[in-house]
């Protein structure tokens, strides 16, 4: 009978829950339903024109080269950052977790970029990536090629530049999550494996990685949801350019819906994003669950 009072229903229960219930209805459910309804209309905020047009918005979106580009860029961004972020995070976590001196200090330093405002980070990198900036100096020092006009002004490097920044920024956060998972692995497993003469590589494969799996799934889904919503970086650094090479779905939604006020069209794009995220998160769950590492 521990911990639970089997009382009758009290009005205080409802009252205590009401802040969440109101928030849920007003700021979560209502917008989602409104978004769904709006995406089947051609609502224009300015003229007030509003009529039901069925799936026209969706058809128009898929023949809109800017939107198609936005979807592709968002996919490239997610697929291109995810493996790096996760691999770096796992490697760092294992490194930090193995009796590293000043462990807490280093752990905090690696994590630091994730708590600074994204706007600040994007502003710093805009300058770092500029013509003649530090990153160009670094690359020319080691003899690598770079676009002389600056990374954010070249069609081929703008998106990769933002992706690299994102990996740099979020690695520390996921490292922390993996450290948490590593700490939950019982030390006896390693001791037993050592007694049996298993090498470091074998212990990694047989013990560490399998135990990281639940966290890996969590990180995968979390990072996918986050990556698909990339907006601030684009707004601060490139505004979608050059040649739409950094146009992302959320930026497209913002431009169409809140800049040009094609509310219905923007909402339809947002719903496609929603579906994409749900689909990919589902695929990730299936993949990780089924593959018995």
């Amino acid at each position: 009978m521990r911990g639970v009072s089997v009382g009758r229903f009290r009005s205080s229960d409802l009252l205590m829950l009401s802040p969440w219930l109101v928030t849920l209805l007003l700021f979560w459910l209502f917008p989602i339903i409104a978004s769904l309804v709006l995406s089947f209309t051609d609502y224009q905020l300015l003229s007030g024109h509003n009529s039901f047009i069925g799936v026209d918005n969706f058809i128009a979106l898929f023949s809109d080269p800017t939107f198609v580009r936005a979807v592709l860029n968002t996919l490239v961004f997610t697929v291109g950052t995810l493996p790096f972020t996760i691999i770096f995070a796992i490697v760092l976590a294992i490194f930090v977790n193995r009796n590293l001196p000043f462990k807490t200090f280093f752990q905090s330093v690696y994590f630091f970029p994730s708590i600074v405002s994204l706007v600040v980070v994007a502003l710093i990198y805009s300058t770092l990536y500029a013509r003649g900036g530090y990153i160009q100096m670094l690359l020319s020092a080691v003899g690598l090629a770079y676009p002389p006009e600056g990374f954010l002004f070249s069609e081929n490097t703008a998106l990769p530049a933002i992706m690299a920044m994102d990996v740099w920024m979020s690695t520390g956060y996921y490292m922390l999550l993996f450290v948490a998972a590593l700490q939950s692995i019982p030390q006896e497993l390693y001791d037993a494996a050592s007694l049996e003469g298993a090498g470091a590589w074998h212990r990694l494969k047989a013990i560490t990685l399998p135990h990281l799996k639940p966290m890996l799934l969590f990180v995968l889904v979390l990072n996918t949801i986050k990556s698909f919503q990339i907006f601030v970086e684009v707004f601060v650094m490139t505004k979608g350019g050059p040649l739409n090479s950094t146009m992302t779905i959320v930026y497209f939604v913002y431009e169409e819906g809140l800049h040009k006020f094609n509310i219905g069209y923007g909402a339809a794009a947002a719903n496609i994003l929603f579906l994409l995220i749900a689909l990919i998160a589902w695929v990730e769950m299936k993949l990780v669950q089924e593959r018995q590492i």
Partner: peptide, 12 residues
Amino acid sequence: PTHVVIIPMYLL
């Protein structure tokens, strides 16, 4: 994903 509802939040 919170960014999905920016338009309705704005209208709301």
